[in-house]
Nucleic acid binder design. Structure first.
Lengths: 340, 340
DNA sequence: GCAAATTTTGCATTCGATTGCAAAATTCTC
DNA sequence: GAGAATTTTGCAATCGAATGCAAAATTTGC
């Protein structure tokens, strides 16, 4: 009998009958701020309790034109950082009364294809992580008036998109400063893929500051993907030819870990004496004893909270430009850069 | 104007007017299997295209009493394995036309509190990961006829709950066999928390096989949580007193990694010569060069696919007992156990 | 070309809760 | 205690799509 879905559903009408009031009274009892006398409220609550009634969100959403559902679209799902981000995001949304409708997006292209589907669920908003929001998507969403908040990278504010990101440019510059101060002089930057605004700002801040410090141009390597293995390949490439860099900044920790292991195992380099390696994100493995990776910590928790907040704000004051929030990072010094 | 949600919503009525047909015709065009002539269908499709119409899932769900929404409840959200699992689960659900409504559950106790909220969204089913499903939850769900599928651990089939898990008992026994065959004799088992069925079967299979092999009783250590740091603490405890175990099986990779680093750094042990360490899950870091951890791989992909499948099945053939699916694991031999 | 069988169509109702409006009940004032 | 002001209440309509039913249109058979 467990599975008979049709029979056991308790509606407001049932409660109304049991409590001897109208359906409206039941509805008002469950609508904060609605006018209902204490006596009615009490009777309704008792009847509801007995019958196990809870308002049907689907019906409520239909009438209220508001679902409290937020579509969450994440592309880089297999990487640790987006996963950490997701966890905090879900909490932050829950704390604000929203709920996450989660979609896995294979690649950036399929994002545009999934958006219409998400909109069919009448989500109140969309949160897009670690992916570029194309103009097509913006158009689709603005047709239904659904706000978008991006996290992990900026851009498209003009189109009404809010976004939250860490201050990658400043972080990149900070890494350059640190490495310079500790006596490293030949810098390299390892990126996963091209095209991303964040990666660009991360690397750009680094490259610019290096130039400002009067160093030789930073060697750049594009690994094609952000994985441990790709980090190892990057090491093989960058360290295999002279002049060899003596300090490498990687676009994220996973790459940095791969690079670090490659540098040590395949080239017998001593880190941090011969080579400095700096990552980005501060994933759990970065703190493991074989690594002790010096890295840039993104304030995941604060970022995701800001993301939820910007969405909530967008929902209140409908129109207008998007808001961009830039959060400061923190340099976590461990053991892959010489101490000062 | 972007944010004006009320104005831009296209309904079936709008399309009907534009196409010169009735609302029903529009509905039927978008309902596979409904009867509509080719000519009508074509006109509707054209009008819909022009207006950018897509059926409202909320309205459809209300009428159809089916949302295609699945509540996904995960407790162990910060650990790598549940994260991997989540990713595959979302894909598997998407492939079957379901969508994941994701909830972060602080601890096992708050699970029961969240379930009623999830049910208010009229989810078609619930998927619970890495947590015990209490009787209270089962009761709440059976009142609405919502099926539950658990993954990561078994139990409660009688109550109509389907579940998917890897064959942990067999895996534990297999680890014991491997270690014995490679000449290790003093076994220890490190668990994170007590109480869990899976952990028990993982450890139980190991302990039992060790006994069957005529070995001394397996030392057990309960670390209280499953983290890298807890693994290190377990190493300090277990290796700090004699007789010291020469083979340690950890409940998961994160613990194993912590244990391994503790054994090497704090005790100067040579792994695998002096000590064998075996983990469980095969998370990405287990394959990293400083670790090369011998471990048991759970078939995440297959498990999550089975989870989605069991849910789908539960939805079709409503009633009856739950189904339990046990998937085989694979021993991944790397470098923390002596080669044979 | 006519009747029978089939398909297509639109009307009206339904899903479950919310809400504007006006009537009814309560509270307040003097 | 009468009348004004306020609160509470129920009715009926609404949100957007799906569907049983019967009428209308089409196809089929001869």
């Amino acid at each position: 009998m467990t599975g008979d879905r049709s029979m056991c559903r308790v509606t407001a009408g049932d409660v109304a009958r049991a409590a001897g009031v109208s359906e409206s009274a039941v509805s008002r009892t469950f609508t904060p701020g609605a006018s209902a006398s204490a006596r009615t409220r009490e009777r309704v609550l008792k009847a509801a309790e007995q019958l196990g009634y809870r308002p049907n969100f689907i019906a409520r959403s239909l009438r209220a034109r508001r679902t409290n559902l937020v579509g969450v679209l994440i592309t880089d799902f297999e990487n640790p950082w987006p996963q950490m981000a997701l966890r905090h995001l879900v909490s932050a949304l829950q704390a604000r009364g929203f709920h996450a409708l989660l979609f896995d997006v294979e690649d950036a292209d399929s994002l545009a294809g999934i958006v219409p589907l998400v909109l069919q669920y009448q989500v109140d908003g969309l949160i897009v992580g670690a992916a570029d929001v194309s103009a097509a998507i913006v158009e689709t969403c603005s047709a239904t008036g659904t706000p978008i908040v991006a996290f992990g990278r900026h851009g498209r504010r003009r189109l009404g998109i809010s976004s939250v990101a860490s201050d990658d440019a400043a972080a990149g510059a900070g890494v350059a400063d640190l490495l310079f101060e500790r006596g490293y002089r030949r810098f390299a930057y390892v990126a996963g893929e091209g095209g991303s605004l964040t990666w660009n700002s991360r690397g750009r801040g680094f490259v610019r500051r290096a130039a400002a410090l009067g160093l030789d141009p930073v060697q750049r390597h594009l690994s094609g993907e952000t994985s441990y293995e790709a980090g190892g390949r990057a090491a093989a490439r960058l360290l295999g030819r002279l002049p060899r860099p003596d300090a490498v900044f990687c676009q994220n920790d996973v790459l940095a870990l791969g690079f670090l292991d490659g540098a040590r195992d395949d080239f017998g380099l001593n880190v941090p004496a011969d080579l400095a390696v700096v990552g980005f994100d501060d994933i759990p493995a970065a703190g493991h004893r074989p690594y002790r990776l010096t890295t840039v910590r993104q304030p995941v928790d604060a970022m995701m909270d800001a993301t939820a907040e910007l969405l909530a704000r967008r929902l209140e004051e409908a129109a207008g430009q998007g808001e961009e929030r830039l959060l400061p990072t923190r340099l976590v010094e461990r053991a892959t850069v010489r101490p000062g």
